[in-house]
């Protein structure tokens, strides 16, 4: 029984939250990595692009709610998602046309692209704050819990409860669907393969008759879809605050580099790696050991590797370690 309790404890406080957070990071990291693979720069405006997409979803959600439209037990935001995606695609393509295309034609160096993306970051940052404000927005409606801790305890008769929020399940399902579709697209369709080919060897792609313009447009479309979905899931699960989205860029970058920049599958794993390390290393295992160890061996400290304050710092530290030992990421293999 104690053993089961310990397992449930770990599931409730580590596995479920880490899978959720990992999915959100993975979606973000794949977006960053795709931009890097095809357009060849690190996009610092990505966090704010996620915020922008989420904002559109929220505004649409509010509009739908004002019309009395809801999505039953699911959050209305899922209904609003397509609108958010379309608007985000539009703004991405607009910025590509007005900003990035010029530097692409000039074949500017990566640093110029980074600086330009900083400019865009400021602009998006301002747009989001001007339109929706800097404050916290909670736009989750529908059923909050799939299983409450107490219900779980009642059913199983265990001491420990397992709570699963509906947003957590929605996050997982959406991520699985999105990523499966994406990897199917990249590996099985002609357009997806040509995207990988372009990312791998631009000159040869041109010699094979692959149209770079088309590839770039498709990339922005995919990236916008991922940004909007990732941002919305994060907002549903926690809450929407522009500043948080900007900050999330940092663990997303960490996940991207850990997975090998330009490598979507690596970014996917990288997101989960970062999330699991953050949560497992900051969790206090005292109760866990209480269940497993005989009474006289029970710990009297928290048994926590590092304090929760350092949650973000962990992902950065992982990144630094990876950069020192394996600058190309820990997952060898396909660059997109």
């Amino acid at each position: 029984m104690d053993f089961l309790n310990a397992i449930i404890l770990i599931s409730n406080f580590i596995i479920v939250p880490a899978i959720t957070y990992g999915s959100q990071l993975a979606l973000g990291a794949i977006g960053v990595t795709l931009i890097y693979g095809v357009l060849r720069f690190a996009n610092f405006a990505y966090g704010d692009l996620m915020a922008f997409g989420t904002m559109i979803v929220i505004l649409t959600t509010w509009y739908l709610q004002s019309l009395g439209v809801t999505f039953g037990f699911l959050p209305t935001a899922l209904l609003a998602l397509p609108i958010g995606i379309i608007v985000t695609i539009a703004i991405s393509l607009f910025f590509d046309k007005t900003v990035f295309e010029y530097y692409r034609k000039k074949k500017s160096n990566p640093v110029t692209f980074i600086v330009v993306s900083l400019g865009l970051m400021f602009v998006l940052n301002a747009l989001v704050r001007i339109i929706i404000g800097p404050g916290d927005v909670n736009f989750m409606d529908g059923h909050k819990f799939i299983m409450k801790a107490r219900e779980f305890k009642n059913i199983t008769g265990l001491n420990e409860g397992l709570a699963i929020k509906s947003t957590q399940l929605i996050t997982l399902i959406t991520t699985v669907i999105t990523c499966s579709l994406l990897f199917y697209f990249l590996n099985k369709t002609k357009t997806g393969k040509s995207m990988r080919a372009y990312s791998d060897n631009e000159d040869l792609a041109l010699l094979s008759g692959i149209d770079p313009k088309k590839i770039i447009i498709i990339t922005w479309v995919i990236v916008s879809i991922l940004a909007t979905i990732g941002g919305t899931l994060y907002g549903l699960d926690k809450s929407f605050k522009p500043f948080t989205y900007f900050n999330n860029l940092l663990p997303i970058f960490a996940a991207t580099i850990v997975g090998g920049i330009g490598n979507p599958l690596g970014a996917f794993y990288g997101g989960f790696l970062v999330a699991f390390s953050e949560i497992t290393l900051t969790y206090a295992y005292k109760k866990f050991f209480k269940y497993l160890l005989p009474e006289n061996l029970e710990p009297n400290t928290l048994i926590q590797f590092i304090s929760t304050d350092y949650k973000f710092a962990i992902s950065f530290a992982i990144l630094v370690i990876v950069l020192i030992f394996r600058p190309n990421g820990i997952f060898k293999g396909k660059v997109i």
Binding site: K193, R196, A197, N201, L204, A205, I210, K334
Partner: peptide, 13 residues
Amino acid sequence: IFTELTVEENLEM
């Protein structure tokens, strides 16, 4: 060649 693609994908491209 496209080093990251399989041989068959190279031909397809």
